[in-house]
Design a protein around this nucleic acid. Structure first.
Length: 276
DNA sequence: GCCAGCCTGTTG
DNA sequence: CAACAGGCTGGC
């Protein structure tokens, strides 16, 4: 489940290897996964930049033969998607659905559950992608101010705080892991209605969201089950998790057993003593 | 704002 | 063998 810190780690791992590389060809093994929105050619695209927005990864492309032709490749890994850089391209693995072929190496898109998508748009047309176009601010940028956070808390006052944190239109990039972890650090139960939380607590939560995400990037993300970066390396933030996937284990602060409940259709983990 | 559906491997 | 994992879309 790559969330913002995992996607950022993947971006950084790929940057060293494929920035300015030329995609010589795109091999598609499962057509549902690769959407060529503008029917662009699939050969000879130079990667000009690798960016991230929320959980989306974007490759800015310039055509090698026709320098006025530029495109954007948008990649969303959803649950189990991986991008694997291969110096010595292996046989196509069982769940590899797309291969980007460079001169020497390749980049394989592998996804067991096939929820992930790659879409190729003519430059500027990427805003046709509904999910991408409607993303809220980046939580680690100055666009995500305390004032903005308090505004959306007012707007979503009748919703649960967990649902708000997971809403990509409100804040880009938070998924189940970092929603649970930031709520633990702020001492707020996931099922609380936003309107019932004090302004003081919300300001603490605002800080904790940024703190947890920044720390997780520093630890190269959370390798709970599937996640590895573009070079196959695991992250190690799973060692820092206080509540996520720790049902029944002692709270690191007070030793109470961590509980689990469904909130916003998601498995949610919390300490019954530290979180109110 | 809620819920089913998309998927398949892992867990109980 | 069923339930579960969870990001996002699209229909109410």
């Amino acid at each position: 489940m790559p969330e913002l810190p995992e996607v950022e780690t993947i971006r950084r791992s790929l940057l060293e290897r494929i920035d300015k590389s030329v995609i010589r060809d795109v091999f598609i093994y499962h057509p549902d996964v690769f959407l060529n929105i503008d029917h662009l050619p699939l050969q000879n695209w130079q990667i000009q930049a690798i960016r991230r927005r929320g959980k989306y990864l974007l490759f800015d492309l310039l055509h090698d033969d026709d320098p006025v032709l530029s495109a954007v490749m948008i990649i969303h890994l959803r649950m189990t998607g991986k991008l694997l850089y291969e110096e010595h391209p292996p046989e196509i693995a069982k769940h590899t659905h797309v291969r980007l072929q460079f001169d020497q190496a390749c980049l394989d898109f592998n996804d067991v559950r096939r929820f992930g998508r790659i879409a190729l748009y003519l430059k500027g047309h990427e805003l046709q992608d509904q999910g991408y176009a409607s993303l809220g601010p980046e939580p680690l940028s100055s666009d995500f101010s305390e004032t903005y956070f308090l505004q959306i808390c007012k707007r979503f006052s009748r919703s649960t705080i967990k649902a708000l944190l997971l809403n990509q239109k409100a804040i880009a990039g938070i998924g189940n892991i970092y929603a649970d972890e930031s709520l633990f650090r702020a001492g707020i139960r996931p099922g609380r209605r936003v309107g019932s939380i004090s302004g003081k607590k919300l300001k603490i939560l605002y800080q904790k969201i940024r703190e947890v995400l920044a720390e997780a990037i520093g630890h190269h993300g959370t390798s709970f089950r599937d996640y590895v970066d573009g070079l196959g390396n695991k992250g190690f933030f799973q060692l820092q998790l206080a509540v996520y996937q720790r049902t029944g284990e002692p709270c690191p602060q007070c030793v109470s057993p961590i509980r689990n409940m469904q909130v916003a259709r998601r498995s949610s983990h919390y300490c019954p003593n530290c979180q109110k």
